[in-house]
Amino acid sequence: MGSSLNKPELLKNGKRLDGRDFAELRPLKIDAGILKNAAGSAYLEWGNNKVLAAVYGPKEAMPRHMADPTKAIIKCRYSMAPFSSIEGHGRSGPNRRAIEISKVTKEVFENVVMLEEFPGNEIDVFIEILQSDGGTRAAGITAASVALANAGVKMRDLVYAVSAGRIGEHVVLDVNMIEDNYSDADMPMAISPRNSNVLLLQMDGGFSKQQFKEAIKMVIDAGKEISGIQRAALENVYKNKKEDD
């Protein structure tokens, strides 16, 4: 949450600054299978966010003492490029924020990946935020989910993520950077679409019980559109291959 003193107006004529309605997503575009070396990959543009996700493995878990003889382990690294923000030069290396996001992202995929298929192995999920404009952890999870499916990793579901927030009295979907800085609440969520279960939930700011219910409904209702784009990205890899030689 930014300072309340120099807070800009976030709504104009009942619309958001970028012209969106309260429950409207920013434009979302995903390409799957764009990195040759990775087992699976995805490039995502969501509003001004640009995100790359790659999956390696299953491969022998390293270091050996981390290997689990009953199932595969997931390693996850969320990282923001030093040039990804409009302001300043980001510090390189994982900061505390990135470590926390990596942890909760890993836990999302531990829920859906069939880890018991590959005991003693690891599956690596790399998320690189090349350009950030708010909602990068949700964008990263949505991209990584496509990368895992593109790698052929067995999963129970194709997870998506998006955030909800609050501007004054209004609950809004898919919070962008300026909204994230000055809004009254921000809540990134990851959802398993087959049963609408919540796999990631973080929130700060202020939500009444009623606003929370509204926000969670908005996130679940947005699933159809986001999942559709994820699915199309995966299918397009095989449609497009036909022509080139």
């Binding site: 829920n111 919540v198 973080q202 700060d204 202020g206 929370f212």
Partner: peptide, 21 residues
């Protein structure tokens, strides 16, 4: 006491929305 101020879900399991409510 007035509003929810922060939330954090952790670990690999999941919650349904009615559980969270």
């Amino acid at each position: 006491g007035e509003v929810i101020r922060a939330m954090q879900k952790g670990l690999k399991g999941s919650f349904s929305t009615s559980e969270i409510d």
